[in-house]
Write a protein that binds this DNA or RNA. Sequence first.
DNA 1: ACCTGAACACCGTTCAAGT
DNA 2: ACCTGAACACCGTTCAAGT
Lengths: 239, 239
Amino acid sequence: MMNTNRTVVSRRSRPAKEPLSHELIVQTAYRLLKDEGMSGMSMRKVAKALDTGPSSLYVYVKNLQELSAFVLDHGMGELRYPDGAGVPWQERLFDVLTAYLHLLFEHPGLAELALTTLPMGEHSLRLTETILSALAEGGIRTTAAAWGVDLILFYVSSVAFEHVSWKKQGTDQLASIKASYQSADPARYPQITALGETLFSGDTSTQDRFRWGLQVILQGILQTQNEKGAEHHERQNGS
Amino acid sequence: MMNTNRTVVSRRSRPAKEPLSHELIVQTAYRLLKDEGMSGMSMRKVAKALDTGPSSLYVYVKNLQELSAFVLDHGMGELRYPDGAGVPWQERLFDVLTAYLHLLFEHPGLAELALTTLPMGEHSLRLTETILSALAEGGIRTTAAAWGVDLILFYVSSVAFEHVSWKKQGTDQLASIKASYQSADPARYPQITALGETLFSGDTSTQDRFRWGLQVILQGILQTQNEKGAEHHERQNGS
DNA sequence: ACCTGAACACCGTTCAAGT
DNA sequence: ACCTGAACACCGTTCAAGT
């Protein structure tokens, strides 16, 4: 009895339950995402991991979509930026994006999020800024730069997502898609038939393919910006 | 009593319930997807629309993912291919992809599916074949063509998906993302600050932007294929 | 071979009630 | 201001039982 009334001591000891907070919720959700993938990050599971009910989360987070946006940004905070001092802009860009790709590879759930969610927070700002500054050094600015960042980030996400899909999707599903391509009527689908195995390089040489795609996008932007970009600009100014 | 035993007549009348079939299930799912979006296409809702229980569907379809793949292909069957006779390959390609983009715009659910699902069926074969043959006419073949189709299709899907997200996402969410970009510390994020409004052209001029991206990809492939492509090939052959 | 009912193990979100 | 319990309206998938 006496002891029961004297639990004041426990005030300074670690409380049985850490109080909730925006940060704690995002961290917990991210841990679940890393450990169990996209389906591990549900409002209910996050709540359970925090030893509370799902409704408690709604004080700190508007809904699952908003939480996802924060978790994605939190994950991007794990990106370690390679030292770009003295490195040419194209290579610098390639290095950062490769690091980002690897981060998404390591955490498949993050790759899924990246494709479908607009991140919210400082870490996505930093990545965008880094890409923009590399592009600017390459002479890519204004509209071309704005659209370029978008295209580039989407490209990285899509490569990561495709890679993850390949691993996750039941082997049967992939086998039957592959089969349908390989048994395509040569008369109706000559190009597909001619390509044969080449069409299924989704699994092989991800590295080469990733590099190729970035090369394509950068070369394309450099080539295009002084045509369409200028044309667009002229139209805007009416000059 | 007598009448009850003589229901043989109804054999030739339309049965109360159409029998299930793979086709019917896919059609029903597609209708739900068109009418109610991605969340309208659940196993349970498809079953209910067919006046049966969800377990009945599993005779014809392995799971939701497989059904999605078939529904996506079914939707691609609505694509009307523009007449490409006498049209230069780049323009032909642009026309087909624009038609595809519009199809995805009309049916937002389809856009969501397109980004996350590998389609299964003849209609996706046809689109791939069409793109490949245009690329081939432009001199783009083998690895560059295979990777190119992939890149192009992903690009179209991503533009459609982004467009859909913009409309669907709560205005609040978008407003706060926009705000975080606009209130970014100019010292730390000079490029972002400099771009200002330009970064948020996601809503404006989708047409220009789409055209720009395709131009970038095609120009990029044309530029890149005789560098990296050849290099890759040499490495493979060890010569 | 196909269909059904019922169950299992989950979801996101809301809301009245408590502190 | 924060937390809780309970409810609402859903999910995908499986499985024994029927025809």
